Simulated assay, not measured.
Amino acid sequence: MDRDRARDVVVAAAVAGVVSGAPSTLHALLTRRRPIEATLAAGTMLLPRESRSVPLALAAVPVHAALSLGWAGVLGAVLPARRAAGAGAAAGLVIAALDLGVVGRRVPRIRALPQVPQVADHVAFGLVVGWVLARRRAARRAA
């Protein structure tokens, strides 16, 4: 992967990693659940026996960063140049199936999360990654 494409993936991962939790956060607020619960669940992937919120939230940072960067790298390699955002959203469904259906089902705290908002987060992630990649590639072509 060349340097420009690698930068594109890192930027896309960072942007998507930050904004893609909006659907589950909104759902948690509307249903009066703790918005941080998904973060704590991610932290249990690194600290499976931990129950305190602060260590789990801190552990979630590298877990989420690694997953975001890894999946953005995959999407950067496979998304088409045209309609990347839509293809990314569709890819988000596949990522959700793997993350939630294969891995998450083995992690009790992830398994306990409402699944529809989690799937929506994954779709949002793929959409945002595709959109950011498309914008950055188009800007490079125009320059």
Rank of each mutant, 00 (worst) to 15 (best):
V107H: 01
G104I: 01
R106C: 01
R105F: 05
A138F: 06
R33D: 05
R3T: 14
M45P: 01
V78I: 12
H64T: 09
L69T: 13
A41C: 01
V107M: 03
G126A: 04
A81D: 12
G21E: 04
R140N: 07
G92H: 07
R32F: 15
V74G: 08
V123Q: 11
I110D: 07
R105C: 01
V61F: 06
G104V: 03
V61Y: 04
R106Y: 10
A16L: 00
P35H: 06
L29N: 06
P114F: 15
R33M: 03
R140S: 14
M45I: 15
Q115L: 14
P48M: 01
G17F: 02
V10Y: 14
I110H: 02
L29A: 09
G70R: 12
R5P: 00
L26W: 15
T25C: 12
A72V: 00
H122N: 04
G76I: 10
A87K: 10
G43Q: 03
R3S: 15
A66W: 14
R135G: 13
L67M: 15
P108N: 10
G43A: 04
G73K: 12
P62C: 05
V15C: 06
P48Q: 10
A16G: 02
A112W: 04
A28C: 04
R109K: 13
L69M: 10
P108S: 13
V61N: 08
Q118K: 10
R141N: 09
A77F: 11
A22T: 09
G130Y: 03
A91K: 03
A89N: 08
A77L: 15
G70K: 11
L100T: 02
V119A: 07
A142L: 12
A89F: 09
L113Y: 08
L67Y: 15
G126C: 04
V63E: 04
A65I: 04
G17V: 02
D4L: 12
Q118L: 04
T39C: 11
S51M: 04
A12M: 08
P117H: 15
I36K: 00
T25V: 15
A66M: 07
A134M: 02
P62A: 08
S53M: 07
A6C: 09
G126M: 02
A59T: 08
G101F: 04
W131R: 13
A143E: 12
D99Y: 12
L100N: 09
P35E: 06
V107K: 00
A89I: 11
A41I: 11
A85E: 08
V102H: 10
P114E: 06
A90L: 14
